[in-house]
Design a protein around this nucleic acid. Sequence first.
DNA 1: CCCGATTATTAGCCTTACCTAATTTACTGA
DNA 2: TCAGTAAATTAGGTAAGGCTAATAATCGGG
Lengths: 207, 207
Amino acid sequence: MKAIWEVAGSGAASTKDVAERLSIAPPSVTNMFVRLQEMGLVEYERYRGASLTRRGREEALRLIRRHRLIETFLLEHLGYSWREVHEEAERLEHAVSDGFTGRLAEFLGHPDQDPHGDPIPAADGSLAPDDSFPLSEATAGQRVRISKVGDDPSTLDYLGDHGLVPGRLLSVREVRDLDGVVTVEDEDGESHALGAPLAGAVFVRGE
Amino acid sequence: MKAIWEVAGSGAASTKDVAERLSIAPPSVTNMFVRLQEMGLVEYERYRGASLTRRGREEALRLIRRHRLIETFLLEHLGYSWREVHEEAERLEHAVSDGFTGRLAEFLGHPDQDPHGDPIPAADGSLAPDDSFPLSEATAGQRVRISKVGDDPSTLDYLGDHGLVPGRLLSVREVRDLDGVVTVEDEDGESHALGAPLAGAVFVRGE
DNA sequence: CCCGATTATTAGCCTTACCTAATTTACTGA
DNA sequence: TCAGTAAATTAGGTAAGGCTAATAATCGGG
């Protein structure tokens, strides 16, 4: 469910994309699509991918809520680094109950976003709309705030080391079409030139 | 592994006892014994039960360590009650990495016993020897400190409600052979008469 | 010392969640 | 439009971890 949401949002997720996200073989995904449809969590048509039903979306958002709350806890209270946190949270989210999730939210002070800057769905399944866009789509001169960063570990490490973390305010100096390099200046006057892959992994909101 | 340890310590655990502890059918246990033996975690002889090898014991103690650290966290930081905590910890302990365990121990200040009063094995697998005994084996006039209480939920609730928790100092007033009732007085001068089942579930150490 | 009760094992089956290999469908560009 | 390729599905298999029913071993009392 979570993989479908992450891969396709409310649209239809392809077998291949889901298989890649989960690192499993495509036939296993087809199989799962059929079963999820029987359970009423997914709308599925052969050769056309699967999309979430209302119930399916709720289920996915509950999982994502768990995941992000757990990540927040691991990062803020157990001293995990960004590169370690994802894997641990992935395993934990399948083992914890709703009761645990609620108490953890309480413990953390009901945060509405995780340390990546991703919004944490509310217990009722509602999710703040996301108006952020990748830095690669910014325009020169714009002032933006980092809202989240991609979750690839080495990307995360690099950005973290350079202070490019959610909440940071940036001025966009140049967006060069030729090679996709985006140059930004941070609050300390430090300037960063980010290649296309990095610029695409830094999500921002206009200020 | 954990079930074998809990049921038999370093002795041999019977198929039946383990099956009961895990609420599964005996044949499943026989099956598992065979596989654990192939893995070198258990010494097993048909019709004679299984006992842990050195590696098996280490493995079991690592799990118990996890379990007790998780329980401690749930009770002390997430506001779980004794009756809820066991089930949640049981599921979590299988999802958590050694890294998590270490950081959680750190977060909790490296406690050496859980809130039940059970010792928490050290990371290297060593476990403090347990010199406690059930209240039913105390003698009148003895002063004892509660070291742990049985983990049956309703027992736990009753004892908790009456302030009979680990750490509490008690004076043994009477141990009546006739019906097994043990009468104790707590630090506040409050007197408690505990029937055989309760007296057997309260473990104490001489002061 | 042996017989019946208790405990354990074997045999055979099920479901879940994966896999690979072979086949089918859909898509795209000449 | 149609052929080649990419994606998806079907077919059939494996291992883990359960189950029940039937059989076998052990043990304790008369």
